[in-house]
């Protein structure tokens, strides 16, 4: 895909200006590693939403090395941080669980307003553009006009959408959609679900039910469950990831709204604790503003001048 790295760079331009800009300042401006420098690093990591625990852990490992005189050049710090972050982000890497026999069923889950519907629409457009036969399932039957919103995306992408009326049982819609996907020999079915706070146990149980519905129709479905996470999310993101993983069996993350100034550092904490891979990043409102996530590219782009 031409210009992909270019657009990834553009998308996280702001991210870099914030995150790396500061690391670079810290690293280039100073000769010695002193407490002030480590404080600056802490600031950089914490304001990236990496979280005070993860930041402390990274800084602790650096401090120890500094204390043992293993590192004395600030330049080496950069490499250390890069390696550490890369290690954490790659720790969750795993291949996509596509079934040998299509259709593949993918659920998109997350809290309200994280960007599930938009992401679902983008995914449909991209897979369709790759020549896959895609079906959409409008399983957000709760939010007003969510079905209409997904329908607009389905028209844009030129893919079929399975829908019922507002207020319908999401599992029933999913049931219909999976039946339709099988009947039409679709390659992949993306199901948009209603946003829900992870603290609402009845709504979380609904996701579990959807999962069971899928499994009844196709062995091993849903094959992938992606948690859509807003890059501006703070430390609550970790609890979101935990709870959605418990109820919905999350297999990967999609980080949206990375085109702002937010850094999405919470994914580092999530990857570290739950070993979940990050599949895509959202960097805009257009269909092609959804880019595959790659830990190397991500961190490379962060550290490029």
């Amino acid at each position: 895909m031409p210009g992909l790295l270019e657009r990834l760079k553009q998308g996280i331009q702001k991210t870099r200006a914030g995150f790396v800009g500061k690391v670079e300042d810290v690293l280039l401006g100073k000769k010695e590693i002193d407490p002030e420098l480590l404080d600056e690093l802490e600031y950089t990591l914490i304001t990236a939403d990496i979280g005070v625990r993860t930041a402390t852990e990274i800084l602790e490992s650096i401090r120890q090395r500094v204390d043992r005189h293993l590192v004395n050049d600030p330049g080496e710090l950069r490499q250390l941080i890069r390696e550490h972050l890369l290690g954490v982000l790659e720790g969750g890497d795993r291949p996509l669980n596509w079934p040998a026999q299509p259709p593949a069923v993918v659920l998109l889950v997350g809290v309200n307003g994280s960007g599930k519907t938009t992401t679902t629409g983008k995914l449909a457009a991209q897979f369709k553009a790759e020549g896959k036969s895609v079906l959409l399932c409008a399983a957000d039957t709760f939010r007003a006009a969510a079905i209409d919103q997904l329908e607009v995306w389905s028209r844009r992408a030129g893919v079929e959408i399975i829908r019922q009326g507002a207020g319908a049982d999401p599992s029933a819609v999913l049931f219909d959609a999976i039946q339709a996907a099988k009947a039409r020999n679709a390659d992949i079915l993306f199901a948009d679900t209603a946003g829900r706070l992870h603290t609402k146990s009845n709504l979380m149980a609904e996701l579990d039910k959807m999962r069971r519905t899928a499994a009844r129709l196709i062995d091993g479905a849903p094959h992938e469950v992606w948690l859509v996470l807003d890059a501006t999310t703070g430390q609550n993101g970790l609890e979101q990831a935990r709870r959605f993983t418990e109820s919905a069996g999350v297999t990967g993350l999609i980080l949206t709204k990375l085109d702002g100034t937010a850094k999405g550092g919470i994914v580092v904490a999530i990857a570290r604790e739950l070993s979940l891979p990050i599949r895509y990043v959202g960097v805009g409102e257009q269909a092609d503003d959804l880019l595959p996530f790659d830990a190397h590219h991500f961190i490379d782009s962060l550290f490029e001048p």
């Binding site: 304001t47 807003d230 890059a231 501006t232 100034t261």
Partner: peptide
């Protein structure tokens, strides 16, 4: 503003 917003809240 979303109560779940992290450090970026100040900037926006």
């Amino acid at each position: 503003a979303d109560a779940m917003t992290g450090q970026d809240a100040v900037r926006s």
